[in-house]
Write a protein that binds this DNA or RNA. Structure first.
Length: 882
RNA sequence: GGGGUUGUAGCUCAGAUGGUUAGAGUGCCUCGUUGACAUCGAGGAGGUCACAGAUUCGAGUUCUGUCAGCCCCACCA
């Protein structure tokens, strides 16, 4: 016997197994290989840091699908890689520079980027390590990075083409600005949160001295940039005042009072101060009414030049000062508490400042239309489906995407400005001469692209685009994208748009959405709460297989799950169960002829039954993986292995195993090996390490289990029973087991203590199987002897199940009164059930409208129940007459 | 202001297309260790499936409403 430890110790083998897989190139994929293409591109983790529990879930789901399809014989590719994560990574590196007492400006762009690349190497490697630890079977030879040569080429090509088609433009617009990250942000990088603030009511005097108009604001400091006051055109209160000139307090700027239907008559006084430079709505109104744009807040959040004593103040300092000054000047009417939504930078949480700036944008409308069409036509399917609505709704209300970032880490925008002629040139290749004037005074655009721009190309840039590689032809569109619902807008929609635009096809057929991994209290795992759990810590303690199994069990698509150490433990216990079942087999296998093959005649009922259960399990697992219900698939595996295989089948094999019949023993060893081997293959996508190491120890196996074929029902056909009612018979037998155990337990008899059992068969069709299985009954319930009788034994505990009455004759131990009461209780329950079933069957409408098979099954239920009732009544009667 | 989602055993969650007497894990109670496994085995208690209606022969499952929680989107100062 191979030396195999008594408990499952994943630390002993997981790392070696992974190394062997990699060494043997088991992950390797070529476009030329046979089989239908099955491809997943990994959602590239940010090189910012290390993987968290959410990644562990994401990778586990992908690896299950990948391993399953690889075993099924598909040409399977899992493309690994990482994302440069512009703002996040730059922020991290800047932080470390700060700790050294320097900053990126002192370092200069080039030196700074070197530092970031070093960072990337360090964390990129950590991520690869973690992915390996988890068992991820990606094709490492193809590992990619969003800023590698190929991705950069793809970005260039796409950018230039979109620019040439007018879908990328440069323009001065109001954008979201983060004063701390010092860059523009897209709309979705701004998180709105309700905050307790104030609403300051101000009065602005009319120039002609005829009084005031009252306005309200949540950001008083922006009043310095006011260039108008707006009212609704239909507002009777202001109709006569439209066209008047208003004097801006503190600044004394003259500005118009005008009408615009944007204004809500019901809100506040119905008059709005208009700051075109610092509010998106005001910006629009400003354009409509030709208002001056006065930018009063700088990019760093301080007040602009030319504002007198306010210049240079921080925006919030300025707010206090302005309020004080307005109050002093008699312009402050009142202040009220006010709850409103404020935008924050999704990266650093600083309050975002809307301001006017010249940026690069992608025009979204024309790109969005085909992306909407793709889900409506079913070419793209979300799992679960409800995310389709969220996706469509977002696309239908899409606005242009601000893609330029004032960062250094990222894809620098391929545009050059000529200082000689003032022209701008966008080019796929670097240029050193202005194509317009042939001047040499070129300046490259300093801005880089939003990280998500390169991520959007990931499904085809990783497959070789812009080259038309065999991989691109073979694997695009990819099969499924597995990701969390939190990045549908950031990433999924943009991949779909770019995929359709540049490949003419959706980038993936299915989007398999999962939820977030939360802590025990249901809170999001975040750095600030410090409640995150490192997957590697879990793996070190319990093994990757336990973590993986824990992450999929009980989880359904699109829903969050909670991390519980106790759940990891129970997954580990499951692994231990498999380990020990295997150990049991291996111990018994020692010295036995592994080539022996039994004939059909050698098989017993238990053998036929376990094959039938295994076949059902194969079907259920396969079906559920195919519909992305991995939690359900795992549940079927767990039930089969623990309950059917270990608790019943293994126990039922022991008589033959320890008996003297060599052929019977060989048969049983063959059966155990066959069932276990098949089960391991079925389980392999979920628990790759454990299944691999046991697979290697089993006889008659060769090579890695990950390259073995996935089980099919067909492979069991030689062992499949001819009986057409095997489930029904098994139910009877299992029912006998449970009932005897139950009776013994109620009597307080040790479950392992021998006790005689008498069976009275009430349905002839079960007689044969019951006689056949008396050994099983003894094995599992310590019933001995098991005898059959035509009459009801008098002094005995009894119970009745379908077709059999079960008696525990225990003269002297039975309290007749108690026994009658117990049976009476059971009888009442049955009568109640029979009454409800009879009720259905007496209902004409049920009979006429319900499907025939439903009616039939109700009839059978009733007749079975009535039989039981009659048995019980006889029994009670008999006891009463004792 | 719109939209989504959740509400099933003490706890965490499964229960696709409506049809067994609603399940699992964990926790709890009782019993059990010489032969795969105490990271275990046997048995048990515990649920008016949030509430109210509707559709249906039949609803945990479909529809409407209510309540409670969570989330996303949104340009009312």
């Amino acid at each position: 016997m191979s030396n195999i430890s008594k408990t499952y110790e994943p630390q002993q083998f997981e790392k070696e197994i992974y190394a062997a897989w990699e060494r043997d190139k088991n992950f390797h994929t070529t476009a030329e290989a046979e089989g239908a293409p099955y491809c997943i591109v990994i959602p590239p983790p940010n090189v910012t840091g290390q993987l968290h529990m959410g990644h562990a879930l994401d990778e586990t789901l992908q690896d299950i699908l990948i391993r399953y399809h690889r075993m099924k014989g598909d040409n399977t590719l899992w493309m690994p890689g990482t994302d440069h994560a512009g703002i996040a990574t730059q922020a991290k590196v800047e932080e470390s520079l700060r700790a050294e007492g320097t900053n990126r400006y002192e370092l200069g762009r080039e030196k700074f980027l070197e530092r970031v690349w070093q960072w990337k190497e360090k964390f990129g490697n950590r991520i690869s390590y973690q992915l390996r630890t988890l068992g991820s079977s990606c094709d490492w030879e193809r590992e990619r990075f969003t800023m590698d040569k190929g991705c950069s080429a793809a970005v260039r090509k796409v950018f230039v083409q979109l620019y040439n088609e007018g879908l990328i433009y440069r323009g001065t617009r109001i954008i979201n600005w983060c004063p701390k990250c010092n860059t523009a942000l897209s709309d979705i990088e701004v998180e709105h949160e309700t905050e307790q603030g104030h609403l300051w009511h101000l009065r602005y005097p009319f120039k002609d001295g005829s009084g005031y108009v009252e306005v309200a604001t949540t950001r008083p400091e922006t009043m310095l940039g006011d260039t108008g006051v707006a009212v609704h055109p239909d507002d009777e209160r202001y109709k006569n005042l439209v066209g008047k000139t208003v004097i801006l307090p503190l600044v004394n700027r003259e500005m118009p009072l005008f009408a615009d239907s944007y204004v809500d008559k019901e809100f506040g006084t119905g008059a709005v101060k208009v700051t075109p430079s610092h509010d998106p709505n005001d910006f629009e109104m400003g354009l409509r009414h030709n208002l001056e744009q006065v930018k009063v807040i700088n990019n760093d959040g301080t007040m602009a030049e030319g504002l007198g004593k306010y210049s240079g103040l921080d925006r919030y300092e300025c707010r206090k000062q302005i309020v004080a000054d307005l109050e002093a000047g008699g312009f402050l009417v009142r202040v009220e508490d006010y709850e409103h939504a404020v935008g924050h930078c999704s990266r650093c949480h600083t309050t975002v400042e809307p301001l006017i700036s010249k940026q690069w944008f992608v025009k979204m409308e024309t790109l969005a239309a085909p992306a909407i069409e793709a889900v409506k036509s079913g070419k793209l399917q979300f799992v679960p489906e409800r995310f389709t609505k969220i996706y469509v709704n977002w696309l239908e209300n899409i606005r242009d995407w601000c893609i330029s970032r004032q960062l250094w880490w990222g894809h620098q925008i391929p545009a050059w400005y000529c200082d000689d002629c003032g022209e701008m040139t966008v080019s796929e290749t670097d240029i050193d001469e202005c194509p317009h004037c042939h001047g040499k005074n070129l300046r490259r655009e300093e801005d880089v692209l939003d990280t998500w721009f390169s991520s959007a190309l990931w499904p085809f840039s990783t497959l070789g685009y812009p080259e038309e590689t065999p991989e691109l032809k073979k694997f695009y569109p990819t099969s499924v994208l597995v990701t969390g619902y939190d990045i549908i807008f950031f990433w999924v929609v943009r991949m779909v748009m770019m995929g359709l635009k540049f490949r003419g096809e959706v980038p993936f057929k299915h989007v398999f959405i999962h939820g977030l991994v939360r802590d025990e209290l249901g809170r999001k795992m975040t750095k600030s709460l410090g409640n995150g759990i490192d997957p590697v810590e879990v793996i070190d303690k319990y093994g990757a297989d336990s973590l993986r199994f824990m992450l999929v069990t009980g989880n359904t698509p699109g829903n969050d799950l909670r991390f519980y150490w106790s759940k990891v433990e129970s997954a580990r216990n499951f692994a231990n169960k498999i380990w020990n079942a295997s150990r049991f087999l291996l111990m018994n296998l020692e010295g036995f002829d592994a080539t022996f093959k039994p004939t059909r005649k050698d098989l017993e009922f238990a053998d036929e039954w376990i094959i039938s259960e295994l076949a059902k399990t194969i079907e259920a697992v396969t079906k559920n993986i195919d519909r992305f219900e991995l939690g359900e698939a795992a549940r079927f595996l767990n039930d089969f292995i623990w309950s059917e295989f270990c608790d019943y089948y293994i126990e039922l094999t022991k008589a033959r195993l320890y008996g003297s019949d060599a052929r019977a023993k060989a048969t049983v060893l063959f059966m155990l090996s066959t069932v276990l081997e098949c089960t391991l293959r079925l389980l392999h996508p979920f628990m790759p390490f454990l299944t691999e190491i046991i697979h290697q120890k089993l006889p008659n196996t060769q090579g890695s289990i990950m390259l073995a074929p996935y089980p099919t029902v067909d492979e069991l056909k030689d062992l499949m029973s001819d009986r057409d009612n095997i489930d029904e018979l098994a139910n009877v037998i299992l029912g006998v087991f449970r009932t005897i155990r139950n009776l013994k337990s109620e009597l307080g008899i040790d479950s392992r203590k021998k006790a005689a059992v008498v069976l009275k068969v009430t349905r002839a069709k079960y007689a044969e199987i019951l006689h056949e299985c008396t050994g099983y009954i003894t094995a599992l319930t310590f019933a001995e002897p098991v005898t059959f009788a035509e009459e009801k034994p008098a002094h005995a505990m009894s119970a009745v199940i379908d077709g059999v009455e079960i008696y525990l004759p225990l003269e002297g131990l039975i309290d007749t009164e108690k026994e009658i009461a117990r049976l009476q209780k059971e009888l009442d329950k049955l009568k109640k059930f029979a009454a409800s079933t009879a009720g259905k069957l007496n209902n004409e409408r049920f009979l006429s409208k319900a499907p025939a098979e439903v009616v039939q099954s109700e009839r059978e239920k009733l007749s079975v129940t009535e039989e039981k009732i009659s048995s019980l009544e006889q029994r009670i009667n008999q006891l009463e007459n004792l």
